[in-house]
Design a protein around this nucleic acid. Structure first.
Lengths: 193, 193, 193, 193
DNA sequence: CGGTAAGCGAGACGGTACGTCCCGTCTTCCT
DNA sequence: AGGAAGACGGGACGTACCGTCTCGCTTACCG
């Protein structure tokens, strides 16, 4: 009925839940995590979880955002290709770690839970996409890219294939993919003399 | 223990299962389909499903493959851009239909079931990818694209963004995305004079 | 893993289960009662049954004990023959009622479930046997029976034939059997002058 | 629809079924025997069992009758007490063997299957009871027992307690029980001088 | 500053679905 | 036609979790 009073929330329980959820999601995949297991591992009543999160997906989303954060940073050395290579490689590395099954599991969860889908798009993906587009726009101003290029589309063409392999597993992730993408996409966007 | 004898399989039951699974997956999403519901709707014992498929995902994969099939066709009018535009638009249309929740649900399933992931990659995605690469390679021979272009990477750069939006929902699917991708990716791959 | 906390047991559910089990066992026989049917009739989750009873037999045993109870009472008018006749007749009447199929069904259950067998013997049969032996012993002290008579064996010789007919159905149960037993067994145990 | 033609029955299959059923019933108890297990062990199709027996109980009853047979024999040395002691001891021994769980299991089966109950009573128990009553009647004619004794009731008082312990397990079976019964029942039936 | 209402741990509850075991029937192919 | 084999529709099993609920217990705020 009435929403819980956030001021009286137990910080101890909150942290224990996030940590338990993280640990379980990383080592058995998000799909196989259960609220009961999280509660048990955190030493917490189930109700305490249901009080603060509407669903398993929402909780895991919080945990993920908490855990990723910094990957959206975008270097700026004046050389777009180098900067993108660095950032795309960092993303690839993350997706090669144990962490990947957590991420993919949460994306799976999002397919059946609109709230998670929205949270994921807005709080994680859009947030990471901003700096990428900004970097490409700056490259445009610097004359590294043609002025008529649609930077949003370019960012998608560069990053989507990494997610594609992460989720669809048609080929392994790796730096070679990053190189190939830069060659195929970014090269074609340079000014023609 | 012993594998079932495929020769004695009931064609009636087989078809009823595939149809029931299809109907349920389309209208409530793959994640919310249960084996019990499929069995009930098909008028079949649960064991008959378990006898022939190892998991819900494996069954849904069969259904999906059965249902998609033709989308991998690739036109060839001599104009790559037009051909890709047509095919990418067809894919986009499919992903805009009710059918999408089935597809995304199955991809979700694949995140926690290696066998489904493999089946999906090999029997659906790779199969669709072949003709795309072939069409790009022909364009290369025809001089429509530069000779040094990595066609596999190009195909990924064109199609992955469609899947990206399908699964991550950062932006709606649509023909405008197709146009933007062709501009950003394919245009850059033309021979430079 | 951990045993349930009996203090928090729902009295409502407990009673509903016992009543449902009783009703089902009486009207379709213990063998044809299923845990699912009990749960459904009681408006209870199956787990609630499994939480408190290890098996169908254990539950039915509780129900039976609950339902019988008073049959172990033994009158004492000073005339052993009359007292035994009264009590044996009461047992016979019980075994002629609808209740019989419940009892026989549970004894059947006991043949394949050691725990039920033990419970039945200790909580029902031994409990009923005590007063019978005590009454016979008193008759001995009163000089109604010879001093060297083995009262336990006598009690068995009197009551076992009733169970024999109940379970093996070689002949119908009835008061005439009671009379015959008293004539054949008890008469022979009187002091010889 | 039409009953099977007994003349064309396969003797090999028939015997294999009886043997398999026997072996399984002895070593896991009649309740845990399944038609599928019998068929598998006998190397026989399930239908072959269903063709010739209406139920598991009916099959097991056939097996049991086949296996017991001789226990109904009653010696006659001229001394009833000695003869009964010998025969009751033989029955007790049988009930102490591995064979007991088969027997008790079948009696359990009979509680829910009228046909089995009838078969058991008529083909096994009554058949065994006849000679016992006959022996007691002869003892009466010989002056070993009083003339007014109801021999049927006496036979029941002597044998029922053995079944009682077999089925209800209030006390272990043993020769001491036999002695006690003879003392308590038979002794009282002798002529009084 | 003592009472009381909130959050908390624990876990029982009514349910749904799981994947398995057998039932008794049926179909096919073989002898 | 009987038999070996085993797929079929079905019912129940015992288990895992779901999300809700009810218990004390502890803790912080408020009259």
């Amino acid at each position: 009925m009435t929403p819980p009073n956030a001021a009286r929330r137990s910080e101890r329980a909150h942290r224990a839940i996030l940590e338990a959820a993280y640990a379980l999601a990383v080592d058995r995949g998000a799909a196989k995590v259960t609220i009961e297991a999280i509660a048990a591992r955190a030493g917490v009543g189930k109700q305490t979880i249901y009080r603060w999160w509407p669903s398993k997906g929402a909780l895991l989303l919080d945990v993920l955002i908490d855990a990723v954060g910094a990957v959206s940073e975008m270097p700026d050395t004046g050389d777009v290709t180098a900067d993108l290579k660095a950032q795309m490689t960092a993303v690839t590395r993350l997706f090669q770690s144990d962490f990947a099954r957590f991420y993919t599991g949460l994306i799976a969860e999002a397919q059946g839970d609109e709230a998670v889908a929205r949270g994921l798009a807005e709080q994680l993906l859009d947030r990471a996409d901003g700096p990428r587009r900004a970097r490409l726009a700056k490259a445009q101003r610097d004359g590294e890219l043609r002025a008529d290029v649609d930077v949003a589309a370019a960012a998608e063409a560069l990053y989507a294939p990494i997610y594609y392999r992460l989720l669809l597993r048609t080929a392994p992730l790796g730096v070679d993919q990053v190189h190939a993408l830069l060659d195929v996409v970014l090269d074609g966007l340079r000014p023609r003399e």
